[in-house]
Design a protein around this nucleic acid. Sequence first.
DNA 1: CTAGGGTTAG
Length: 880
Amino acid sequence: MAAAAAAHLAVASRPSSLSRKNSDKTKNPGSSVFHSSQRILLCTPSSSVSLRSAQIAATSPIEERRVDLDEQTQELCQKGDLELAMKSISSLTHENSSSLGAETFCYLLQLCAELRSLSHGKKLHSIISSSGIAIDSEVGSQLVFMYVKCGELGEGRRAFDRLPSRDHPFPWSLLMSKYADIGEFDESISLFIKMWESGTKPNSHTFSCILKCLAAIGSIRLGMTVHGYLQKLDLFRRSVAVGNAIIAFYSKCSSMNVARKVFDEMPLKDIVTWNSMIHGYVSNGFAKAACEFFTEMWASGMEIDLATMVSVIPACSKMGFLAEGQALHGHSIKSGFVKEVSLNNTLVDMYSKCRNVDNATQVFDKMGEKNIVSWTTMTSGFTINGAYQKAIALFEEMEAEGVELDLHFITSALHCCACSGSLNQGKHIHDYVVRNGLESNVFVANSLMDMYAKCGNMVDARLVFDCTSIKDIISWNTLIGGYSKNSLPNEALALFAKMQQHYKPNTITMACTLRASASLSALDKGREIHAHVVRSGYQECSFVANALVDMYAKCGALLLARRLFERIAVKDIFSWTVMIAGYGMHGHGREALATFKEMRGKGIKPDGVSFIALLYSCSHSGLVDEGWRFFNMMRNEFKIDPAVEHYACMVDLLSRAGRLSKAFKFIESMPIKPDATVWGALLCGCRSHRNVELAEKVAERVFELEPENTGYYILLANIYAEAEKWEAVKKLRQRIGFSGLKKNPGCSWIEIKSQVHIFVAGGKKSNLQSKEIESFLDGARRRMKEEGYAPRLRYALIKAEDEVKEEALCGHSEKLAIAFGILNTSEGKPIRVAKNLRVCGDCHEVAKFISYMTGREIILRDSNRFHHFQQGRCSCRGYW
DNA sequence: CTAGGGTTAG
């Protein structure tokens, strides 16, 4: 204020009688120019002005002409007519330009700023410079203002740096806020520091801006210092904007409690105050609090504006409050907000998230103006509601219309392809990305990788990864996770090792990597990662803790899994499910049931997945009655509609128990279409209970559903072979040959001293120690006979055709791995072997005997479950 | 008191 007055004084002290005379008129330049009716009345119609200007130029003496020129230009400025104002001073030449009052230049520059007229602004700048008069801080500030408003921040900064004095906060705050707008918070903060050091007192604008910057760089401590200082100044009580800025600061720093306290203490609140609180609650994940706050705002009689609506509607979306959302929609219609694109976009989002895709589509179709956000929102709306084809159609529509698609839209479309497994559509979008040079964007690249990974195409996912120069931690995690989920654990672990040269892994990396170790059954590797987790302090993260339990369970260390499980302070539904599944795969059905009971005792409501784990546990422990009980409990008590996985568990349960025809009838009575896993479970049952007739019937259904899955053909071939139906085996073999199918080769592996050793079919050329292994197994077999072990060996298979025989040999890979383990580990240590297919019957018997013969515990994980061999017995008790 | 505080999508 003082500085402004001084500037005015400086202007007044110029040899100009008019500036003093005019000073009452010039008090309120700027935005009021267009609104003051008094000013407009004072204005002369433009035609008469130019007439007068011509008269003046012709007749007046110099002094009078100058006065009139000042007055007349200022009047034109007040009217907002920049063109005429510029024309009126165009008669000025180099020699006499200094005769125009500085105040007039202020008027002109301000009008240029408001009208964003950079060309006139620049012209004025050059006139002022060439006039030879020194640019005082008032004119200088207007120059800064003009340049900044015209989008020339750099020029504005240069003008600022040339100011003779910078004792007014205006140009400081102006630059600070523009730097903040373009994200250069550090520059803004450094200006604030310079300002502070120069002794210029910041005002409320400056403080609003610095709080915004400090929030953006996450400097909570400094922000709190500013808050404390403002409390001493009592500034935030006098300025609502400052109070609002403090609220925004705390909400951005996730301290809604403090924000609430500030809110309560503010003596003056406006609509922005309320809106800031609502937005703060929503963006910090307190959607419910946001809704409640809105209700309070409504009740207080405060006006509701567009920003309120655009903040509170997403809160309803997050909560799934359809009725409330609809009420807000109604209010928007009444208040005319439905004209706004932004509001319609939130409505489309709200209806989509509240699972009302019809209303979402209706709003979308009806909205007058659409922007790229509308299209993006509708695309993800279709995706979350499973209407993948409609989402893809939107992409095609946009592409056909030649609309320029931004990266948000592209990532949404890719996400849709990822969710629906639409590889071809995804590739099509990839083409678009390449054509439009968007592949260097890290978000797009990450979405592409995610899409390829979810579609099971890790080769292309890797290609995108390798071609992207800019990677972030999400890129690495996406690819590692993709490898883990696509059963490529070795690739996942290799990439994890490589990643550590570039990035510190985060909790998500750990969870993905643990999953890879789990699927490899690589206990040492898992332990290594566990150590990493502890060193990084990630063990408190529930994601990681659950992954650790899962890893130990899948690596056969069930006791360790249980111990870690018990250490999880807050067990969520995932923790419980993982533990129940862990017991299930080890055949500890009773413990699984007890854990489930414990979970319910803690008030955790089971979901569909936890029931899959439970039913699976029952089937692997032969708990038929219990299985039924839980299946009914799930439907009746928890109102969960069984999914195909639940049916598969039940069929498995019945089939293992030998109730094959009941299982068959059960499948036929299913309300949903059974898939290959359901029929496949029955086919397995047919094998263990040697029912060839039913097997043939069931197999046809399976082949129809999954004609490319060779595992089922081999299963049937084995069923025939075991029944010595060689003709049938031959026919089936021909059928496989005709379709040109390749089978999944069986392999087993064992980890010794962090090194994974893999054994494949036949084991011919596989290992250095193949001789020792062979002689060990020969010895074992000899002793088996000597000790009268009934060799339930499938000798019959020897008569089989090559294809089947080879399959029988594949089964031997686990024997090789077990033998290798015994030969290379010290006595008394358990042997942990994993296999990619189900264990073969012969190997199962041999493993039992080896555990008895050597006194070693053998833990074999096959594709289906764990087998703990100890003293000649297996934990599966035949349920495999 | 020309500048400041609150606005949807990945």
